[in-house]
Structure formats: structure tokens, C-alpha cells
Nucleic acid binder design. Sequence first.
DNA 1: TTGTAAGCGTTATCAA
DNA 2: TTGATAACGCTTACAA
Lengths: 368, 368
Amino acid sequence: MEVQHCFILEKSGKFLLFYLEGTTVMGALTIKDIAKICGVSVTTVSRALNNYPGINQETKDKIMEVVREKQFIPNNSARNLKKLENHSIAVLVKGVGNPFFQPMIATLEKFVHKQKYTFILQSVNDNEDEIEVASQLSLEKKPKGIVFLGGYFKHTEAKLRQLDLPCVICAVGSIDEKSSNVCSSVHVDDIRESYRIVDYLCKAGHKRIAIFAATREDKSISALRLEGYRRALADNGLPVCEELIRYSNEGENIYSMERGYHDMKKLLKERDDFTAIYAISDNMAMGICRALKEAGKRIPDDYSVAGFDGLDMSSYYIPTITTVKQPVREMAEAAAEILFDTIENGRGVQHRTFEGEMLIRESSRAIN
Amino acid sequence: MEVQHCFILEKSGKFLLFYLEGTTVMGALTIKDIAKICGVSVTTVSRALNNYPGINQETKDKIMEVVREKQFIPNNSARNLKKLENHSIAVLVKGVGNPFFQPMIATLEKFVHKQKYTFILQSVNDNEDEIEVASQLSLEKKPKGIVFLGGYFKHTEAKLRQLDLPCVICAVGSIDEKSSNVCSSVHVDDIRESYRIVDYLCKAGHKRIAIFAATREDKSISALRLEGYRRALADNGLPVCEELIRYSNEGENIYSMERGYHDMKKLLKERDDFTAIYAISDNMAMGICRALKEAGKRIPDDYSVAGFDGLDMSSYYIPTITTVKQPVREMAEAAAEILFDTIENGRGVQHRTFEGEMLIRESSRAIN
DNA sequence: TTGTAAGCGTTATCAA
DNA sequence: TTGATAACGCTTACAA
């Protein structure tokens, strides 16, 4: 091992070993050390660091110089502990990585930064309770507001109220009626949008339409979109064939391409008494297309395929996927607006429902 | 506004307003309040909360009962401030949302949990310095180790050493030679893998192969993959046509489908003296396919297309994309192994290079 | 313009 | 088995 040139600095009573480049080895510097080095009090250093008024510019410059030189980083835990609020907005996403949320996250971040707030992106695991995570985060970082992306939101009013923070639930299926007194929300009407696309398929002459839903027990978006499907069939005088409702098995990644692919293969083996497949996510729709292609079927000649969401990807796929696009950027924008309206103007809970956009593309056709 | 039933609790000298459900309205409970309610000291509560030995089971049960009942959540900032270490692993991702990282993140999380560590996922913005973020996080959460996913890593040894934490850089193009004394790494040999796929195209009879690279100035994976391209052409006795090297413009989302799509349209307008297109990302390759399709070109009959990465998506696309797949799950596993080997066994810096897997699929063909 | 000192909510050390 | 009490590193009255 090579001997390194170094120097010693007294730090909070202990001694610090420094490399020449200024890199410490025995623990991080604190505001106290900076104060000592600069020959001022910690208060003054704090003032310099936080751009507080009432500090001599020269003093400030000198301090900041040392801060830079020593690469001092203030300890956020200590800050958060002391501070009552944290000029920041937290976004909790159940399933970062889900391409559906990408544009939303980007939009939110831009908006938040424009308002000069700090943006905190917190991922929530599938098996975690988003409110639990939110409570922890709230205590720890003390943000001014929270946006929830995804998840299910079967929460009691008490739990939500406990959060005691302006929050907006965005793009979540069924919101507990009770939550709506406490939390704002932004979403599309899943039943209506689902209805529209199924209605389109019916009007295009499809009489037997398979649907790929989530689990049989689902009470969230899948249940809503399935309801839209049932209503559209009913209104078009078509019977619902329960065999054509394809629920996902446990453990499958419900909305994934993989699931669409495998379940489509299975469906093709089981029956062929349908002319269209409606998947409640674009991802599944693409997996379905692939399965059809491998089975030698042509899209849309042999089968029409429709999805839901309007992922960017769905317009690059071959064929492009017929779908109903959720206006994700607008929705995220609205979520942010509502949040800031609550934070800065004290406005109460708001609920906004957006219209989806029907995109009839290459994967579907009219039959006669 | 409806009047709510509530009760009052003295809290740290102040008074708290409680709803009947136990929800507080005037600030969160602290360990002190719990101690007071239970008639024990804060130390004892802390011991109960942290599963420390040397506490009467009955006392513990009673405390935990109150904790549950009052929905007490310990303040993490205070914990982090006091604790020297935090039985946790942090994963810093430049570009969460990038589908390439999804399986890696999932693999890492599983591994970390299996080791009974807490998993911290931290997203790093494009414009942020990953080492800066890591330093902050290290100070704030005091994790036992860090995995970096993505980014560029042109960092001085001093900056990296300053981190003073076991860390592994995973799936990053060019690692500064200096960093390698400080940080472990896991990656594929971008030059070699790129060489292989271009070599395959050459051997398949393609003499003029366009490549979609990142910016002209890039010094990262793009530069490496481009180098592989040049070498493969050279070894196959083919000249490099600089016009067929398509750099991305500023501001474009360099590796995206969108970029592949637009730049392919442009390329088609400009020239047609090539038979294959090699994109340094699968995403681009799919955008390219879409552009070709819209131009009425057939793949692979008119043009062969190849990508890089081996995204799951690339096997569901129509046509499936010829690519070289990075063994992302194995790489993530290796990164975790190395990290824990360093943390628990004190092993030094390690570097592992993985082989990619050539996947010759529908988007390319041999020509004669 | 600067400094002193009292917390913020925990954990850790010691003594009981 | 428990409890005082001193940190942890910072912010913030309040005083000078």
C-alpha cells in the first residue's frame, strides 16, 4: 500500500486525516468545522449556506470559499430534523419504470422546478402501502405536498387525513369515496373510455371481442375497464361471453407484454370464436400482436387488436396499436396545478376527470 | 364544516388535538409521547422499537401496542442523524424509467432484501452529478454501499475516494482509469460486443452499414460502440463512410425510439446507399423499423436492422430485433455480490466483464 | 452584522 | 431490566 501525503485537521475535538486533494478519510466535516476554519460562528455559516439576509457579503464569500474548497456538504438529516417545512414536493410512484408514468414524472418534475421547489421522487414497492411510505416521507423530509402515481387507494379516510398534507392522487383507478374529501384527484373515467373503444370495435362489426383483464378479484382500473366493456357490448346488443374474458393468473406481471403474449397463445389454442382482442393495457396489446404473428395470424385482417393507455411505444409498434390515449402530460400538469393551488392559495380538494383520445390505428379494422 | 369528535393529549408540553380514529392534527407523535403514555422512559421505547435485547417482553408488548394504536412512526431524520450506519444499500440510477435498468433494479432489490438490508432507490437526474448525489445520500442515510446504474463516470479519483464507501459501477461505458482503484465495476465490453454484431452484418454480406450513434462529442458507450463498428468494418476490408455515421443532434433524447424514427426518415431522404442500419440501442432500432415501414420498406428484405442491449421489448417487436443482449440480471447479481463481498468480507475493488449474447432475429438477413 | 444557546427526535453510554 | 443524559448536525430565537 502506497503512503499518501496528507495533513491533519482538528475536527470537533477529534482529528481528521486529510488527503492533499482535500478528501477526508475519517468522517465528514460539519458546519462547526467550517465555522472554526473561518473563525466565525456556526450561525454565520448557516446564514451563508442558506442565503439568509443580514450577513456581510465578504464574510459570506469567505465562508463559501472554504465550503467549496473543503467540499463541505450539509447534513440533510439534521436539516430535516430541525426544519418544519422543506420547500419540496414529493412524488410517490407505485412502479417507477412503468413507461406509462415516465411522461408524467418528467412533466411533474419540470413543473415543480419551475415553481422553485425541490422535486423528490420516491418509488413505492408493489408490496408497500403508499400511505405508509408517504407518512414516513412526510415526517422525514417534510415536503409541502405529495402526488401519488399509481397504486390502488383503498384507504380509510383516517389514514389519509393523518397524512395532513395537500395531496393529489393521479391516474389511479377507483378512489375510495371517502378519500375524496381529503385528497384531490386527477384521472380519466376508465369506464367511459373503455366503453368508447369497445363500442368502436362493436360498431366496426366485431361481435365477439375477447378482453384481457387483470385478476378476477381486481377492484381497480381493471374492474372499471371491464365494466365499460360489458356496457358497450350490452348497448350494442351483444351478449357477454364469460369465456372471452381472460383474467390473469396470480403472480403474472398483469399488464405486461409477456402476459399478453402467453395468454394470447393460450387463448388461440383454446378457441377461435372471436375477431377482436381488447387488452386493458398497450403493453399487453403488443404482446398479443406478437403471439398472433407467431401463430401466423395477420393483424388486422384476421384479428383486430386494441389496447389502452396510449403509450408512446404504441405508435412505434408494427402495427401501430389502436388504443385510447390518456392525456398523461396534461394530467400531470393538472395534478401539479391543483397541488400548488392548495399549497399556496389554500384551495380545497379538487377532482378533475380528463377525456381520453381514441386512436384508431393499424391494429384494428372494420369487418362486414 | 362538520364538527368532529376529538380528544386532547398533552404532547411535549404542548397540546395535541386527536380525532377519534387516533389521527392527530397538530403534529406528529414522538418517542417522548409514547414514553409518557406508556409510563416508561424514551430509552425503553427506543429499545422496543429497535428490537434491542435486555427489555422485558411485557413492557415491550405494551409499548408496541401503543405504537400501533397511535400509529406512531419514528422520525427517520433523527435516526439517521444519530446512527453511524444504516444496514442499507443505495442504488443510484441515472434514468430510472430507462427500460434497460428495470430488470437490474428488480434483481438488485431482491438480492439486497435477501441479505436483510434495506433497499434505497435513488434517481439521479441527467443534469445532476451522481457522485454529488451519492455524497449527499451517504451523509443523510449512511448506507453500507452504493451501486451506480448508468451515467458517465468521468470523475476524479479524489471525488470518488471522498465517498469513502464500497461502491460498484454497473453498466457504464467508459470508466475513468483512475476510478478503478476506488470503485468496483461490472460491465460488458462495448467495443467487443459492438464489433461482433457489426461483424455479423458484414459477414452476412452487408457492405454499407449505417450506424446511429450518440453525439459526435460522446466519450461514453457510444464512442466505444462506434469504435467496435469501425474495427469490424476494417477487419472485413470495408471502408468507413463517415456519411453513414449518424450522430444525434443536441437536445434529442439520444437513445429513444423517437430519435431513431426521425433520424431514419431523414436518412432515407438523404441517401439509399446502404443495406443495413445498426443502432446502438434497441429503442432506436425499433424507431428505425417504424420509419422504414412507413416509407414502404420491408425488413429485412430491403434493409437489415440491428440494435444493442437486448431489451425484453425487442423480442416482442415485429419484426423481432437482431441485437446483442447484455446479461442484465447476471450483471446486477454480480454487482450485488461484489458489493456485499466488500462490505462483509472486506474484499477490495473488483472488475467484472460480461459477455453479451448475439441474438440474430427477424430484423436482419444475409444478402448475396 | 454576528454570536450564544436551545432545541429538532432519535440512539448510545452509563449508571441504577 | 430500566432510566438519565449526552450527543448527532443543523436552524433559529434572542442577545449583543
